[in-house]
Structure formats: C-alpha cells, structure tokens
C-alpha cells in the first residue's frame, strides 16, 4: 500500500508540474496557466503582476495576483452587478476570501512563501464570482415557495399551519397553499409569484365568499409590482390582506397572525 501511495503522490506532483506554465503577456505581467477551468472549458485567467515588485525577491516579497478585470468582463456576458444588493454580495465574496477589488480588477497580494495557496485561493474565488450568474432572477424565483415554506414551518408553528388545504370539500380544484388557525376561524394564505397564481388566488377567495365560509385571506407576493394592474386590482378586491414581498411577510407575519388570535 505504501508503494501505491508513493505512486499517487508522484503522479499528482508530476501532473501538477506539467500542467503549469507562465507566459509573459506584457513587460513584467505574466499569465499563469493553471488547470482550473470555467464550465465552458475556458481556463480561469490569472496573472502575476511584477511591475512594482522589488529587483531581488525573497520569501517575504509580496507578489500581486490579478485577473486584470477578466472575471467581471466574463460575468457581464450574462449577468450585471447593477444593484446595491448584487454589489454587496460581490464585495462579501471578495472579503470572505481575502481578495480585493480595484477598479474592476480582482487582486490578491501573496507572499512568495505562500504563492501556491494564494493562487489556489484566487482561482476558487474567481470561480465563485463568475458563478454569481446563478443568482439570476429565474434561479432566485424558483426559491420563493421553498423560502416561504421554510419560514412558515420554522417561525409560525404556534399558529398551527397546514399545507395544501381544500376548504370546500366538494371543490377539490380550489386549494389554499397554507391554512392557519390562530383562533376559531381559519386564515388562508396564497403564495403569488405570477399572473396564474394571482388569478387562482382571486378565484379561491371569491368562491369562499360565495360559499359563506368564515375566514380571512392573506396573499404573500413574490413581487407585487410584477403583476399586471388588472391582476392586482382583482386580487385586492377579493382578499383581506396582502404582503407585497416575502421580506414584508417575514417581517410582519407573526404580528399579523397574533392579532387574529
């Protein structure tokens, strides 16, 4: 077994060595080719900037590792950091990984003695930055119901939530997303993320009224402004209370349901 481990060790060392190259891109700026790739097969662009490095290096010499703006350029093909929240996420990724942003460049100053771990850290962080496109709306959108569900069952348990309830037994086509019973009467909650769910919620509330049910209705919107004016108006007429965003619901749900108790 020790021969095996020796062979593995030698293989990794050899393969790492062979898969590394330095190319001078400009005077005193070197691109370092490392076996780290984006999902599309392009190598992660990493440069060593020696323009301000001392003539004679030592173990403690600071070596600047930089992407020269390539990461944000690549990210911009499909994702823009164009809101304070996105900037906050970007800056937090850099901070948590010990890197800095300088005029669109991502930089890391490593000591010569720890250049290898510095390069690894740099590449990992660049990969995280370039994957910020996973925070695109269509990905986040799909988390609305998961987040709502998590919040309801973690924080609103005392109001006895139940999922997927059919208030009118003969109408199994009309279902509420959640039911609470803070007092004797139920509170029905619909999660609304688009026109289709807005219309279903409207139909549900109107049917309950038509059938003289004793209840209150809550709508939790993923994004109230995303709905058309007509959908908003219809829903407003049909339901009792609306939370215009998930954040709004998370901040105020407990107080609201407590008042119903």
């Amino acid at each position: 077994m020790s021969d095996y481990i020796t062979d593995i060790s030698n293989a990794v060392a050899e393969q790492f060595n062979h898969r590394f190259r330095l190319i001078e891109k400009r005077p005193n700026i070197f691109q370092i080719y490392l076996p780290f790739y984006h999902e599309d097969g392009d190598m992660i662009e990493v440069y060593i900037d020696l323009r301000n490095a001392p003539e004679i290096p030592s173990e403690s010499t600071t070596i600047r590792i930089s992407d020269f703006g390539m990461s944000l350029m690549r990210l911009s093909y499909s994702y823009e950091i164009d809101t304070p929240n996105k900037e906050k996420i970007f800056n937090r990724i850099l901070l948590e990984n010990g890197l800095r942003g300088e005029q669109g460049h991502i930089v890391y100053d490593a000591e010569m003695r720890s250049l290898y771990p510095g390069l690894m850290q740099f590449c990992q962080t660049v990969a995280k930055i370039c994957n910020m496109r996973q925070f695109k709306r269509e990905v986040i959108d799909s988390l609305f119901f998961e987040t709502l569900d998590e919040f309801i069952f973690e924080k609103l348990n005392r109001f006895r939530p139940e999922k997927a309830v059919i208030p009118i037994p003969e109408r199994d086509d009309i279902e509420v997303d959640y039911q609470f019973i803070p007092n004797g009467h139920p509170v029905f909650l619909f999660g609304v993320k688009d026109s289709a769910s807005a219309r279903l919620a409207t139909i549900g509330c109107l049917e309950f009224l038509r059938n003289d049910l004793k209840f209150k209705s809550i709508i939790v919107h993923e994004d109230f402004d995303k709905l058309t004016k007509k959908d908003r108006n219809r829903l407003t007429r049909a339901c009792d209370k609306q939370f215009t965003s998930l954040d709004d619901f998370i901040s105020n749900a407990e107080k609201f349901l407590a008042r119903e108790a």
């Binding site: 080719y33 097969g41 392009d42 190598m43």
Partner: peptide, 11 residues
C-alpha cells in the same frame, strides 16, 4: 485569452 480544455497551454 489563455488556454482551454482542448488546448491547455495554447493561446
């Protein structure tokens, strides 16, 4: 801009 998976050290 640098290597790719099809040519690691080829620009």
């Amino acid at each position: 801009h640098g290597g790719t998976k099809i040519h690691e050290h080829h620009n």
